[in-house]
Design a protein around this nucleic acid. Structure first.
Lengths: 206, 206
DNA sequence: CGCGCGCTACCCCTTTAGGGAGATGCCGCG
DNA sequence: CGCGGCATCTCCCTAAAGGGGTAGCGCGCG
């Protein structure tokens, strides 16, 4: 039986140590490298060609989602598992769309980690039911457009429609039109509510 | 030289394993127990009387801040270090007010962890300069009152002033009066901005 | 005791946000 | 080529939010 060669990517050294400790106890897994942000992850992947990569999403320098997309663009058969604290269905969906084969939460138990790594290494996809359910709840909704997200970011920054209009070089009426499109899409009662929902769903960052 | 007996409290088993791995390599420290939420933490503390406790803040069942306060009420000389991802100056200040002797971020390196544990065990307080600076930036501001936080929570839930008034059984005018007090305190331009600032500073939860 | 603060409540007024309906130009896709 | 989605813009109207000031009432603290 071959040994599974693993790369971990996370900006928390302590967590990486915890993961390493788990693999030390598994004789069919070995940790071949560690990285602490997306940029390092890409570089490490090129050099090490791990069988499975564990990747956090929120990291300095380059996010996990960007790193996943970049690695998959270069190595189409790269097997990457997201390992993160839950950050909303939009984040999870984006990670899977970028090419992640699995999604794990940091509060899971050791057994799930091992099991998921084996499954992904065998070419399967693994998304926990609670995550899958959350994503499924919103596939029916039409997603926000790029422009709408941009406007929502301005709203979150405390800007008025008038200011947003100036900043994006469009009329205030157009900003209102976009807001009238955003609110029902997010099922929000007003702009403040829309921002909260977008934060919870991982559409906006805090 | 006596061995430092340590209790860890965090809802991420992997992180606890990482911490445990660090202590295994230190011959003057030993991990005597683990807990995964505030309630378990209190119970474990009573039973084990650790020299130093490492406590996360965001946990299910009971938050770290409540646990710190409860433990310190019962054991006034308990030495507790917060170990968390940064959650704003209000959270940090609340933890220190509740009786924490130190504040560490999860993205620190091993050496800082060891050093802080030794310092706190020796009776010192340890707060990293970047945290101390953040807290200091806001000590001059007058804090939100209990009622104001309550109203801001309603605002974050997407409620209108009218709805908030009904729910809190006060007049809409009073809600407006409170808002007129909240906005300048947070230096916010409108209610949405106020909610964002409160989230970033740890005054509200997502 | 008096003072300050928190909570309550009211007034007036301006600005902003939100809801409805309609319309144009652009671009990609079948 | 025509259709749909996106972004842009317009007009009208109502509701909500924000800014100013004033004031009573209870409570703790020096």
């Amino acid at each position: 039986m071959s040994v599974i060669r693993i790369l971990t990517v996370d900006d928390h050294p302590l967590l990486r140590e915890g993961i390493a400790a788990v693999f030390d106890a598994q004789d069919d897994m070995t940790l071949v490298g560690q990285a602490s942000n997306g940029r390092e992850a890409i570089e490490s992947f090129r050099r090490l060609r791990p069988d499975v990569t564990l990747m956090d999403l929120r990291m300095p320098d380059m996010s996990g989602i960007e790193a996943i997309a970049a690695i998959r663009a270069e190595f189409a058969n790269a097997r990457i598992i997201v390992l993160t604290t839950y950050a909303g269905d939009a984040q999870a969906a984006a990670a899977l769309k970028a090419g992640a084969a699995g999604y794990l939460l940091k509060n899971m138990v050791r057994k799930e980690l091992i099991e998921t790594i084996r499954a992904v290494h065998a070419g399967k996809r693994r998304v926990p039911p609670e995550i899958a359910t959350e994503i499924a709840e919103h596939v029916a909704d039409d997603a926000l457009t790029e422009r709408e997200v941009q406007i929502l970011q301005c709203v979150a920054a405390g800007k008025s429609n008038k200011l947003i209009a100036v900043q994006l070089a469009i009329s205030e009426g157009t900003v209102k039109t976009h807001m009238k499109s955003i609110l029902p899409k997010l099922d929000a009662s007003d702009r403040t509510h829309a921002v909260m929902i977008a934060l919870r769903r991982g559409i906006l960052d805090l």
